[in-house]
Every structure is written in C-alpha cells, then in structure tokens.
Amino acid sequence: MDRQIYILVVEDELEVMEALVNDLEQFEEFFPIESANSSEEAKQVVKDVYAAGNEIGLVLCDHVMPGQNGVDFLIELQANNAQHEAKKVLVTGQAGLEDTIQAINNAKLDYYIAKPWTKEQLEEVVTTQLTNYIMERKYNPMQYMMILDSVRLSEYMRTHKITDH
C-alpha cells in the first residue's frame, strides 16, 4: 500500500482525546491516527498528510474549542478540493441546532455522535464511514476486508466487475 489513509481526531480536552484514541485502537494498524488540539493545529496536520502523498479518510471533530470552532473547521475542510471527500463526524455535546444545520448544509457532515459515546457506537460509525470512503474513492476493497464492513465491500466487488484473468 503506497498511500496511507489517516483518521484525524480534533479535540481540545486531553482526557477526551485520550478516550477517543483509545476506543479507535483497532483501526490504527490500517488507518494511522493523527490528533490535534485545535482547528489551527488540525489544518497543519491536514496539510502535512496531503503533502506527504497521503490522505485523510475520516475526521472526528469536537465543536466547542478555543479558536475556530469545529463546525467552521469542517466547512473550511469541505471547501478545499483535495480534502473534501474525507468523511466528517462531529463528536460533541454542545453543538446547537444552528451549528448543526450549518455543518450539514455546508460541511456535508456525515454523522453526529453525541457525547458521551460508547465504544461500540464509535466503532460502528467509524467502520461505516471508512467503508463509504473506500468505496467512493474506488480503492481496492480487498485491503480493507479485515477491518471494515466486509459484507458491504464484497457486495461492492460483486457489482463492480472485478474479473478473472
């Protein structure tokens, strides 16, 4: 695999960040995890990842943070051509209706996880979103059968004409 697909976690509170990264442990082998404490730091991470020829597959983002808030960060990310395909998930307890509408309309928010989350819920959301990402980007599904939704990836192979040779 020449290209790495990253999971980016943006969260200002250290304990919450640690809990999130811990719960994502099983994905780490296939999808390296990058963390950022603020929107500003996250932008730098995004820049570095793409500059190295890699990409962000999924962003898990808090909303209320010092500096730019999570929704505005996601909107900015969506506007950027190279990165707008990354799956975007808000993990927050404090995004109001207005912010959430903004996120759905302008950042193409893919999922909203309300704090507190459970490990099972988080894993399920991450699996679904990364499976979507792999299929939308038309990457070879075989590399991800072990970790993502193997039934959906098989179905994708069935309908997308991979053949004998």
Partner: peptide, 15 residues
C-alpha cells in the same frame, strides 16, 4: 466469472 461469483458468495458466508 469466478471472481464475481466469489464476491457474491462472500456476502453469503461472511454473516
């Protein structure tokens, strides 16, 4: 094709 058949059967046996 053997491959398409395998992909389809995977959706049957994985569950």
């Amino acid at each position: 094709s053997n491959t398409a058949t395998t992909a389809m059967m995977m959706t049957v046996i994985l569950p």
